[in-house]
Design a protein around this nucleic acid. Structure first.
Lengths: 193, 193
DNA sequence: GTCTATAAACGGATAGAC
DNA sequence: GTCTATCCGTTTATAGAC
């Protein structure tokens, strides 16, 4: 792996662990095994490096979600698969954590991928729900847009609860809880024939 | 207000806006209108000041939640009131944001109030749900513990979506979505007489 | 491309005067 | 109680040698 590559990967890890403010060029260099000269040769500074790192992380998150959501099967099963997907729960969401960083949100070029990723994710899940509704798999009274926002929020909030507790249990409970609430709105779950 | 008091309040604001790592003693002093000598006379340093600030913020959050949850009325209405309570959505949760700060979580005296607050909140909401179930207001198939975790997670995750979007809309959608899912599990909502 | 030298400002405090 | 002086390490670079 080239120096530039290692620097981007180190930045990704550090942004995830410590956030933008908590990540210094020095720490990036040390983790990458690269010197200052090398870093400033490849990147103009911390913001540009963060740009590269955030863009890559956002793209990865999107691809991972899309893989689960575009799988064949009933809508509710795909949502459940998204909810129960394996995650490094105690580390939190590498994209979601950036929303708490004022220096990231103040810089449009850094915040844009964050904004786009969540806009896309909620929209994509709403799409799956609409599909399910149109296929008659879901209660028509279920609003796709707000339900999608709920699903994504549970995951993001689950990370918060897990980190607060120092255990992934609250996360698991939160996603099971919403999966259960959703399952009750599936057509096959209704007994009011 | 005394110097010590102003220092604590400034620290609370800065921890909320910028997190622990992003908050310097200098910034605290300036916002409080106090000098270094004053700050180090009243507090041993940044950690002790943060201790005071976090404790107070956690206590406030708990009191606010308790006020809504202990109100009279059906369980689902109290949960809905908690969900729709007025919030400074774009600022995020002053307690939840601390879970993203590794320096806070690494210090047990700082992380303890955070841990306790969420443990209490989820437990308290589970209690309300159990009450509702026992009174016959709720579907007995609804698990109080996991549903409570879902409710709190939606709020915490709603903040993340709102900050990402730069708008409180996704937050409102997420809480409406879960409120709607919950309402469908209320006894009066069932039509399987 | 990578290394070392240099630097202004900030972070987080201590010490002693008033 | 509050102020000023001082301190050492870090942050975030820039400049120039190799």
């Amino acid at each position: 792996m080239s120096s530039a590559e290692r620097l981007i990967e180190s930045t990704r890890e550090l942004l995830w662990e410590r956030g933008y403010t908590g990540t210094s060029p020095r720490a990036i260099q040390q983790r990458a095994g690269a010197g200052q000269g090398s870093m400033y040769h490849h990147f103009s500074g911390k913001p540009e490096l963060a740009r590269a790192a955030i863009g890559r992380t956002a793209e990865e998150m999107r691809a991972t979600a899309e893989a689960v959501l575009s799988a064949p099967g009933p809508a509710l099963e795909r949502i459940a698969a998204y909810l129960h997907r394996e995650r490094a729960v105690l580390r939190g969401c590498p994209v979601g954590r950036l929303t708490q960083d004022p220096d990231v949100m103040a810089d449009a070029t850094l915040s844009e991928p964050v904004k786009q990723t969540f806009a896309w994710l909620v929209g994509r899940i709403a799409e799956v729900l609409r599909e399910g509704r149109d296929r008659g798999e879901l209660d028509v009274a279920l609003d796709p847009e707000s339900t999608a926002a709920t699903v994504v929020a549970v995951v993001q909030g689950g990370y918060v609860l897990a980190r607060a507790a120092g255990s992934s249990e609250p996360f698991d409970r939160a996603v099971s809880g919403v999966a259960s609430l959703l399952a009750a709105r599936g057509t096959s779950a209704r007994n009011d024939d």
